[in-house]
Design a binder for these strands. Structure first.
Lengths: 257, 257
DNA sequence: CGGTCTGTTGACACTAGTCAAGTGTCGTGG
DNA sequence: CCACGACACTTGACTAGTGTCAACAGACCG
């Protein structure tokens, strides 16, 4: 099953469940397993550090509300933002193989997240092969997302990088909101965007202004609207990684065990 | 268990087993499962295409011999090499969530690889939670590797990028060879290295010559030796991702099932 | 031995970085 | 309600690191 399985689910339920259900039907036992990961909730204010790098403390998070950014920091202050997480994402699949934290996490705005220990994955792995496959698939898609960013930074001039990022954010926002909006609220400063795209804040400012002048986008406050999505997708050869999810290789539902 | 578990294993056995055993003790049943993934072997000559992008054909590979490179290709010829694989690596964990291939794979030299279908993962997921955890951990480390490359391309000037790549390759070669050698045979052309680091072949040539002139490296034919590893690691803030592997959260060995 | 591919080197162009001054926005407190 | 300060963003002038182009040298293969 490559296609998206759209489902209208109760808004009050777990954000992680909603995200996974977007791609996969969950049975009762799986539902309980996923929900058990979201038992605890903590919140952080805009700009707060959620996780520092190099610390042994180890928790994964399910993101419930707000944007989170992940970054690698150099001793001499150079910073590479590697990722933005949005509601429904599992934060920390990249940390599983490492005994200490490798990335820093910051709240881009007021956020709510559900921490759970690495060891909570044990019950998932032993009790639900399908959820284990889902985790593998999520981690797999994360890899593709990093590769897309690599292509942007490695191959594109500044303006295309900015276009690429706008398209990426819009695609991701549409997954959460289940609607075909053409705008989103940008929660990152231009300096942070620059650190994500390998350019400076000055260049980000100039390119955004140029995109606005060329009628590719409009801006008001933090809201960015994309006016010519098709055209921008062609220019950057953008591929939406969120609209397909191959589950054909997943184990059967509830094998005898 | 963070530490590497060095083990001297029979050279004739599965390369994948050897790689995994580097980090994790496998019981008989797990061994058989892993070995079953390496039942088939195919070989490709230097430069041959192993997998094209955008095709529905779907196989993962265990790499047995030689280097393989993965790349994303633009319609207009721009190319981003995203990864080099070396013997013992599982190729294709990034493709699990996608119904069609996203990256191209090429043999950097004569290679041997063991293809297995995605569906072969079903038995791993249902029969061995520990191996499932291992796959997750491998995918997790892959993510870190992409992030490191992102940091290199996004934050470093050309010379540091080259240093970073040399250190990365050396670390990886040392895993396979179980020895503290300070050199490796470079199987990629300078154009390919450029496409990996987001610079041109001309710049790669100039930076390598400069590194040699500054006595950081020596070159003879395809062999590159690193003379001042510590110094280069400091300059690039290099972290070896191959010498730790956190298995503390793995499920117990052979749970009753 | 000749053709092809890879790597080297220099001249020049250009994108994006750096620096700096100025404007706009937001939150706080008087 | 307004004044102030902090921070984000804008804009221009100048600089510098890489890219581009091109000619050439060296390695490899048939």
């Amino acid at each position: 099953m490559d296609a998206v399985i759209p489902q209208s689910l109760d808004d009050t339920e777990s954000c992680l469940v909603r995200n996974i259900s977007h791609y996969l039907a969950l049975d009762t036992q799986d539902l309980q397993l996923v929900e058990s990961l979201e038992r605890d909730v903590t919140s952080r204010g805009a700009g707060e550090c959620i996780q520092a790098a190099g610390k042994p403390v180890r928790s994964l998070f399910a993101l419930r509300k707000g944007w989170v950014r992940a970054s690698l920091i150099d001793a001499d202050g150079r910073r590479q933002v590697t990722r933005t997480y949005m509601p429904g994402d599992v934060i920390g699949l990249c940390e599983l193989a490492s005994p200490i934290t490798t990335v820093e996490l910051h709240a881009c705005e007021d956020v709510e997240l559900c921490p759970f220990p690495k060891s909570a994955l044990q019950s998932v792995l032993t009790q639900s092969p399908r959820l284990a496959a889902t985790l593998l698939a999520l981690s797999s898609r994360d890899q593709i997302i990093y590769m897309d960013l690599l292509r942007a930074i490695g191959c594109m001039p500044a303006m295309e990088r900015v276009m690429f990022l706008l398209l990426t954010w819009l695609s991701r926002v549409r997954v959460t909101n289940h609607m075909e909006q053409n705008w989103f609220k940008c929660c990152m400063t231009q300096s942070e965007i620059g650190d994500l795209l390998g350019i400076t804040n000055v260049t980000v400012s100039k390119e955004l202004s140029a995109l606005e002048a060329a009628n590719f986008i409009t801006r008001e406050r933090k809201k960015i609207s994309l006016l010519r999505i098709e055209e921008m997708s062609l220019i950057t050869r953008y591929e939406n990684r969120y609209d397909v999810f191959d589950t054909s290789w997943f184990p059967e539902v509830r094998p005898a065990n």
